[in-house]
């Protein structure tokens, strides 16, 4: 592990003045010059231990007052950037009003890591693609000229993307993001000039064809201060399921979140989001159209699930994901119906 100095930020203003690089950009620096943010520190420390980043300074934002509150009112849920996954899991409003989010958080990582990981860090973590995480593999995301996972014979691509996978086939690490995207949550970001902006999650993630070097829009000095989620309507039903190899804990092979506003058995509003399907969490718009303003029945649920996988291009070792996603989407739709 490289040596670094430590800056204990006392306020958001104090923090954003100190930082000159994002974790993503740090990957391209030959030697440590960057000051980067750290909160729970799990992903930053992981990248440092792996030698993928060599920051000069860690700006610790974990103890900034006011960023560790979670609240719920008529306008919805507000989760401070430093709220841990365990705190979200234990929150009554999340349990009762945001069932899909609760399910996603409760199945993220391990009990130990949920006590440490913050929501902002969870959303901003880099992909778990093992080629990306290995300093021996200069892949697209690290400025290299190939995707090792995509190779039809040697690529270990069991966990990789089946949609929007023309270039980099990694999948987004956060499965909580899948649920937050389904609830149409947004991220509050403060920049170095102390200007705050609210970015819907649908605009927060960056796909490889836009910029393969990063997975989100965060710029140097950009600090996530809060995640907000609109209040669900009285008739809102939600569903979340994550399929993993080990029952105890694991990274997602396929996860699906559905948030729908129901009028009887007719679906008046719906978002279906897929995690571990594409390099970023995505909405299955075409599948949503099948059930929107219709009664959800077995036939429509089956068709919506098929449509969601219509453009899938499985890699050499992950065609299992198609029937997996289809069955979760179908089951989810029938459950909320």
């Amino acid at each position: 592990m490289n040596k670094f100095s430590w800056y204990e930020a006392k306020s958001v203003e104090d923090a954003v003045k100190q930082v000159n690089n994002t974790v993503s950009e740090e990957l391209y620096l030959p030697s440590g010059k960057a000051a980067i943010f750290k909160s729970g520190g799990i992903d930053v420390l992981d990248l440092v231990k792996e030698g993928l980043i060599q920051p000069k300074t860690i700006v610790n934002v974990r103890n900034i007052p006011g960023l560790n509150k979670i609240s719920f009112d008529d306008n919805g849920l507000r989760i401070g950037a430093n709220v841990t996954l365990a705190e979200i899991e234990g929150n009554e409003a999340v349990k009762t009003r945001y069932a899909a989010l609760h399910e996603a958080v409760a199945h993220a990582a391990t009990p130990q890591l949920r006590n440490m990981s913050t929501i902002a860090g969870n959303l901003a973590q880099r992909t778990r693609c093992w080629y990306f995480r290995s300093s021996d593999h200069p892949c697209f995301r690290k400025g290299g000229d190939k995707c090792f996972a995509k190779h039809s014979e040697t690529g270990q691509n069991e966990n990789h993307a089946i949609l929007e996978n023309d270039r980099c086939v990694s999948v987004y690490a956060s499965s909580v993001a899948t649920a937050l995207l389904a609830y149409q949550g947004s991220v509050m970001i403060t920049n170095g000039k102390m200007e705050s902006r609210q970015v819907p999650l649908s605009e927060f993630f960056v796909a490889p064809d836009q910029d393969v070097s990063r997975e989100n829009i965060l710029e140097p000095n950009d600090l996530i201060t809060e995640i907000s989620v609109p209040a669900p309507d009285m008739n809102t039903k939600s569903y979340y399921s994550k399929q993993v190899q080990r029952a105890s804990y694991d990274w997602s092979m396929a996860d699906v979140a559905i948030v729908a506003q129901m009028n009887g058995d007719t679906c008046e509003k719906i978002t279906i989001t897929l995690g571990a399907a594409a390099p970023i969490p995505i909405r299955a718009y075409e599948a949503e159209k099948i059930v929107l303003n219709k009664k959800i029945n077995e036939e429509r649920a089956t068709r919506a699930a098929k449509v969601a996988m219509e453009n899938a291009k499985p890699l050499s070792k992950n065609s299992y994901k198609l029937p997996l996603f289809e069955s979760i989407i179908k089951q989810g739709l029938l459950e909320i119906a």
Partner: peptide, 20 residues
Amino acid sequence: TVYLDGKPINSCMTMALDVG
């Protein structure tokens, strides 16, 4: 695994300076 204020955490991924 150790506890910080009674909560189990991974001490390998916790910086000593973070203990406070």
